[in-house]
């Protein structure tokens, strides 16, 4: 890999946010195509960040910084890709379910899934279930990822499963859940396809769904 690509990986991992645009531009100027930069430098960097988080060397502040550094590079590369996310490895619709506004965890999952090379459609927080499902259908998403920290909103996750079943889409669109109030047992109980404890695990779950 080129010295510029190595430098970009290092910049994202260390969160040198002000250097990210120039470093990405240097890779482009060298003739490396945007897709290669995304998958071989930016994704690789987020993988390293994930490992550092998993081993408790990084905590949320460092991950947030790396994620924002990643987006600096990504914002330069994405417009150079043809089509609407067609160069991605899959599409995920992500949201915090209606009734809950705690979205930091969701934002970190978004960064990790983006780092995985997925097209992440982020609907935000406090989102009605019908909107999540309609967007997933509209965008031909392979995955719906929902989170909540609270308990009254767990019912929304159950609703996602029921609605997908009714539409005959259960299984065709995989579901994954996470957040403080959720658990593996709860995911199994409502029939969600996956659960993860944190954002790094979430990227593994999504990768397994898509066979990447």
């Amino acid at each position: 890999m080129s010295a510029n690509m190595d430098a970009l990986v290092d910049i994202v991992v260390k969160g040198k946010i002000k250097e990210a645009k120039a470093a990405t531009q240097a890779c482009l100027d060298e003739g490396i195509d945007a897709k290669t930069i995304i998958f071989d430098a930016l994704s690789k960097a987020m993988g390293i960040v994930g490992d550092l988080y998993a081993s408790k060397k990084y905590f949320l502040p460092q991950v947030l910084l790396a994620a924002n550094t990643l987006y600096q590079g990504l914002n330069l590369c994405l417009p150079l890709l043809g089509g609407d996310g067609t160069a991605s490895k899959g599409t995920v619709v992500i949201a915090v379910v209606e009734g809950d506004v705690h979205d930091i965890g969701k934002n970190i999952v978004k960064a990790m899934l983006t780092g995985l090379g997925l097209n992440v459609v982020d609907l935000g927080k406090d989102i009605p279930i019908k909107d999540i499902i309609a967007t997933a259908v509209d965008k031909n998403a392979q995955i719906i990822a929902t989170s909540t920290l609270m308990t009254p909103t767990l019912a929304g996750m159950k609703q996602v499963e029921a609605d997908l079943k009714e539409m005959g889409k259960k299984g065709a669109i995989k579901t994954m859940i996470g957040g403080g109030a959720t658990s593996k047992e709860f995911a199994d109980q409502i029939g969600a396809d996956g659960w993860s404890y944190d954002a790094v695990e979430a990227s593994h779950v999504a990768a397994a769904f898509l066979g990447i």
Partner: peptide, 11 residues
């Protein structure tokens, strides 16, 4: 916003 504050620690 908590996310802004946490990110602010780094910035």
């Amino acid at each position: 916003s908590t996310e802004n504050l946490v990110f602010g620690i780094m910035m």
